[in-house]
């Protein structure tokens, strides 16, 4: 009798194809980005808000990289967003108004902070991570508040003058250049993130999220992987913050506030965790809702955010996300990536 059991048709070629298919762009994805590009030309009066959506979307994608793919919960992701914003703002004021250079510097600064603080979230259960990330954001906020000679303190960082983009495109008051700029940056970084999550590296992150004990037993250097993705995610958040500073030409302490971290969590949760598009879809829904609700009751918009969160959780966020991802998977040609189980509930050790 042969050692090889009878089976089959399954060849290396087929397996390779099936694997690669997951990394390929689906029709839905292409349409999604075409639609986004179309807004540049068809919705000129909405460019200011679309710019904000793109920035929040990028911020949420950055959170998805650690929460959705590596399972790190964070209540302080605004730390990186805020640092990126301040660095971009200060850099423009003190050094040069060239947007791309400033954005790169903002990303690097946030990445450094991410790298340094990543070691704090390696150990510990969810609660410890929540507290530590929250603490880091609070410390950052406190520093920005105290160092008012540099950051403008409670008055905010004013007088940021941006040079033209690529030396050619001036930022206009309708936000068209700003939106185009943010959208292109978002797209490029999204493509990179997409590569990351479909790579062996991304797969190893998912394995750590699902079962870090087993991941170690397969020889995966768990800590190094977590440090890496946390740093990358911080860089993304920093670039999102940098975009905000550059396109609004103003930075206030608000960029480091607790509600920033909470909002981005909400954005991601609305759109669904763990398939990258969740952050973008969530950003659109969030901003549109905010627009509608705050025109009804300007000051009490927070109430509706709260209500949405409560209802979303009670209705079974995971299940809704599963469904959203299923639909997205259909739409985006099965590229949506990781099916996700509920994050393992960590008992008290």
């Amino acid at each position: 009798m042969q050692d090889k059991p009878f089976m089959s048709s399954l060849t290396t070629d087929e397996v390779a194809t099936s694997l690669r298919r997951k990394g390929r762009w689906g029709l839905g994805e292409v349409l999604f980005w075409l639609a986004a590009a179309a807004t540049l030309f068809f919705l000129p009066e909405r460019h200011l808000i679309l710019n904000e959506i793109a920035i929040i979307g990028l911020f949420a994608v950055s959170l998805d990289l650690i929460l959705g793919y590596a399972g790190i919960v964070s209540l302080g992701h605004a730390a990186f967003f805020g640092v990126g914003a301040y660095v971009a703002g200060i850099f423009a004021k003190e050094m040069t108004g060239d947007p791309l250079t400033g954005l790169a510097v903002a990303g690097v600064a946030a990445a450094l902070l991410g790298f340094a603080t990543s070691f704090l979230v390696l150990r510990g259960a969810d609660l410890t991570r929540l507290m530590v990330t929250l603490g880091v954001a609070l410390v950052a906020g406190e520093i920005a508040n105290q160092a008012s000679w540099l950051t403008g303190g409670a008055d905010g960082l004013q007088g940021i003058m941006m040079g033209p983009l690529l030396g050619m495109f001036e930022f206009d008051i309708f936000g068209t250049t700003a939106y185009a700029y943010s959208l292109v940056v978002l797209f490029v970084l999204f493509v990179v993130a997409r590569r990351i999550v479909h790579s062996p590296f991304g797969l190893s992150l998912r394995s750590i999220r699902d079962n870090s004990l087993r991941a170690r037993a397969v020889g995966i250097p768990v800590n190094r992987r977590l440090v890496a993705i946390y740093t990358i995610s911080a860089a993304y958040a920093g670039i999102a913050g940098g975009l905000l500073a550059q396109t609004t030409q103003f930075v206030s302490l608000d960029v480091l506030a607790f509600h920033r971290s909470a909002d981005v969590l909400l954005v991601l949760v609305i759109g669904g965790v763990g398939y990258l598009y969740g952050g973008l879809i969530g950003a659109v829904i969030f901003k549109v809702l905010q627009d509608i609700l705050s025109s009804m009751t300007p000051q009490y918009w927070q109430f509706w955010i709260g209500l949405i969160l409560v209802v979303l959780v009670l209705a079974g966020r995971e299940r809704l996300t599963e469904r959203a991802r299923f639909l997205a998977g259909r739409l985006f040609g099965r590229s949506a990536g990781a099916p996700r189980t509920a994050p393992a509930r960590e008992g008290r050790p």
Partner: peptide, 25 residues
């Protein structure tokens, strides 16, 4: 009680936001 910590955090932040806005109102 049986849900993930993330769900609990989201839920209770939601309650805080509602309480803050309701008292403000």
């Amino acid at each position: 009680y049986a849900r993930s910590h993330l769900d609990q955090v989201l839920f209770s932040i939601g309650l805080v936001f509602m309480a803050v806005a309701a008292i403000d109102y």
